[in-house]
Computed example of a mutant assay.
Amino acid sequence: MRNGLSLGDTAVVEAIVTEEMFAQFEGVIVHPAYSTVSMVYHMEWAARKLILPYLEEQEEGVGGAVSLKHLGMATLGSNIRIEATVIELTPDRVLAKVEVRHGDRVIGLGEVKQIILTKQLIQEKLTPRVL
């Protein structure tokens, strides 16, 4: 990774809750509210935005871990704000604290770990081995 990313750096994703973000399984809506699955997606996206400007051409970030507490609800049309903050940083790992807000309310808290690997190594791991 290029130099420049620092502890305390932040990245933000803002979204408006749509029907596609509702809690659902196999197309059946469980309840018309922002789902935990959508929250994980947005948390990972905010954390990824932290590293994108610093990745070298031959590098990529891969998910290493996600933890979250889904604390509150947001309904159709709600504005949500997801903010990721770097809390740990090594040359090949970035850990971000992530907070999800609906207005003044915190509706989600968690962490996202990303591991920085070369694209070549990722491809090698994805290529089936012939025995």
Rank of each mutant, 00 (worst) to 15 (best):
L5F: 03
L5G: 08
S6H: 14
L7V: 04
L7W: 03
G8V: 01
T10N: 11
A11P: 04
V17G: 03
V17D: 00
T18L: 02
E19T: 05
E19V: 00
E20Q: 15
E20S: 08
M21N: 12
F22S: 14
F22Y: 12
Q24T: 09
Q24D: 14
F25R: 08
E26L: 00
E26N: 07
G27A: 02
G27M: 09
P32S: 01
P32D: 04
A33L: 02
S35A: 10
T36W: 01
T36K: 02
V37E: 04
M39W: 09
H42D: 15
H42Y: 10
H42C: 05
M43T: 02
W45Q: 12
W45M: 08
A46K: 00
A47E: 10
A47W: 01
A47P: 13
K49P: 01
L52Y: 08
Y54G: 03
E56S: 12
E57R: 06
Q58F: 05
E59D: 04
E60Q: 13
E60F: 10
G61F: 00
G61S: 11
V62Y: 09
V62H: 11
G64S: 03
G64M: 01
A65L: 14
M73F: 09
T75F: 14
T75I: 05
G77V: 13
G77W: 15
S78R: 05
N79F: 05
N79P: 10
I80S: 13
I82S: 00
E83G: 08
E83C: 13
V86K: 06
V86A: 11
V86M: 07
I87R: 03
L89C: 00
T90M: 11
P91M: 15
V98W: 01
E99M: 04
V100I: 07
G103P: 10
R105P: 07
G108Q: 03
G108S: 05
G108A: 12
G108Y: 04
E111K: 13
K113C: 13
I115N: 06
I116C: 12
I116V: 11
L117M: 11
T118L: 03
K119R: 15
L121H: 11
E124D: 15
